[in-house]
Design a protein around this nucleic acid. Structure first.
Length: 422
RNA sequence: GGAGGAGUCGGAUAAUGGUUAUUCCAACGGCUUGCUAAGCCGUGCCGCGCAAGCGGCCUGUGGGUUCGAAUCCCACCUCCUCCGCCA
């Protein structure tokens, strides 16, 4: 949510920002509703003032007759009040719903574009892995080594699920350990959050209407299953305030993530690249507005250093305005090179959501002068476990069908190669 | 899942339908005075006004009853106790 004062003072900027993000919203209508709402509120407050005054008179009334007289007058006043009240409520609802539709403003540095086609490749890092043979698709290798079983998963759960098995499981634990270890060194607090959260928290994080079909909802319990642990870690401090000296507050979370993948029928149907359920290690940070761009750079640098530690070829993408999503003001993705498929695929994403979520969640900090301000909130992927395992399998595959384990993971796995044991 | 109880400021607390929601502690800001320091005042949100000031909202949340609700009623949320179930 944006600050209405900001919208009043900068309607042009807000119009441009929404347009750049491809969000169709009538700012003039909002401002009109806002004006009418304010006027009505003033009238309503005046009415209430009259009522409050009359109530005092009732208390001080000398006798019953005098009392009754004032009460009768009040009842009449109330009839007009009810009409005004209803009118205000209607207007207020309209105002609120319009406010919720306005996306966060993109930074000026964000490339302007319509959709993912217009995203900018910032840099390619580490040369693409070279092979003296034709590299295979990860599923071909994983099935031979019995690391991933999607056939039985289909039998038990349906499409887009998988069993992770044997060394792949130990690889997962190793990746979790590595990510948490690196982040903790940078001051991140480890957390395993709930994966079921209330609708108002999901809403405040900015994932409702447009992405509705993407999220699992448990009707009986009125709870959402998180699509990423960010949705659960962000609201952790709702209705709280930080002392400035305690910021930034950084978390490194691990959770399973759930996605309905409603809009992706027929896309990536094989394997575990796009599944309904996957595990992810995620960074989250609360900081002052002055430091949020630096914090964003830190998150990106941690993501890159993790990829470098694994020696995986990747590129960094500067996400364009049309592909940003509502809460983000700036977003970088990392895409890993998958030689078995001869293409880059998204692994990481880090967003600076500025105060967009903080305003709805009411998360503030007290600055040096004792003034309360909204914090800035940022998130970034550390490891999407499944996709990293895919990347390791494809980039570390050997001609004999075995897989080397990245050196940095070997101290956790206890083995350096995954081979087919008859 | 069943039964019962509770939610008032950062913490602790009073107010059971009617003045401006009480008091203590803590923290912060300001003021005063030379006693080992102490005392006093202030400290939520929104709006109108150049200003002095004025008004509205705030007892977990949202409704309802009433001229008037922290107080009565309904729903929801959270916590506690007991029973049942349970890794």
């Amino acid at each position: 949510m944006l600050d209405i004062k900001f919208i009043r003072q900068n309607p042009k900027i807000v119009k441009q920002g929404a347009k750049k993000k491809g969000v169709d919203i009538d700012i003039d209508l909002l401002l009109d509703v806002d004006k009418k709402r304010s006027q009505l509120l003033l009238a309503l407050e005046d009415m209430r003032a009259q009522k409050n005054k009359a109530n005092k008179e009732i208390k001080q009334a000398k006798n019953e007759r005098e009392k009754k007289k004032i009460i009768l007058k009040m009842q009449e006043l109330d009839r007009g009040n009810d009409r005004l009240d209803q009118k205000f409520k209607d207007l207020d609802n309209k105002f609120k719903s319009l406010m919720l539709q306005i996306p966060n403003m993109p930074f000026d540095s964000v490339p302007v574009g319509k959709d993912e086609e217009d995203n900018l490749v910032l840099r390619n890092v580490v040369k693409k892995t070279k092979f003296r043979f034709t590299p295979k698709n990860y599923m071909e290798i994983a099935e031979k080594l019995d690391l991933i079983d999607t056939k039985r998963a289909a039998k038990v759960s349906g499409s887009r699920f998988g069993y992770l098995k044997k060394e792949a499981v130990l690889l997962q634990f190793a990746l979790m350990n590595l990510a948490v270890e690196v982040a903790v060194k940078k001051g991140f607090i480890p957390v395993v959050p709930p994966v079921l959260i209330k609708p108002e928290m999901m809403g405040a994080m900015g994932y409702t209407e447009r992405g509705k079909d993407e999220i699992y909802f448990l009707e009986k319990d009125n709870l959402f299953l998180v699509g990423t642990s960010e949705q659960s870690i962000g609201p952790m401090h709702s209705n709280e305030f930080f002392e400035e000296k305690n910021l930034p507050k950084r978390y490194i979370g691990f959770s399973t993530c759930f996605r309905r993948e409603a809009g992706s029928y027929g896309k990536d149907t094989k394997g575990i690249l796009r599944v309904h359920q996957f595990d992810k290690v995620e960074m989250f940070s609360f900081c002052t507005p002055q430091k949020s761009q630096k914090e964003h750079a830190l998150m990106l640098s941690i993501e890159e250093s993790l990829m470098k530690l694994l020696k995986l070829p990747y590129r960094v993408i500067d996400i364009c305005t049309g592909d940003l999503g509502d809460p983000a003001a700036k977003k970088y993705d990392i895409e890993v090179w998958l030689p078995g498929q001869d293409q880059y695929r998204e692994t990481h994403s880090t967003s600076n959501c500025t105060d967009f979520q903080a305003r709805r969640l009411n998360i503030r900090y007290k600055d040096k002068f004792g003034k309360m301000n909204f914090v800035h909130m940022l998130n970034g992927t550390a490891f999407p476990i499944g996709r990293i395992i895919i990347a390791i399998i494809e980039n570390y595959q050997q001609k004999d069908g075995s897989i080397k384990v990245p050196k940095v993971l070997q101290k956790y796995t206890g083995f350096s190669k995954i081979i087919n044991k008859p």
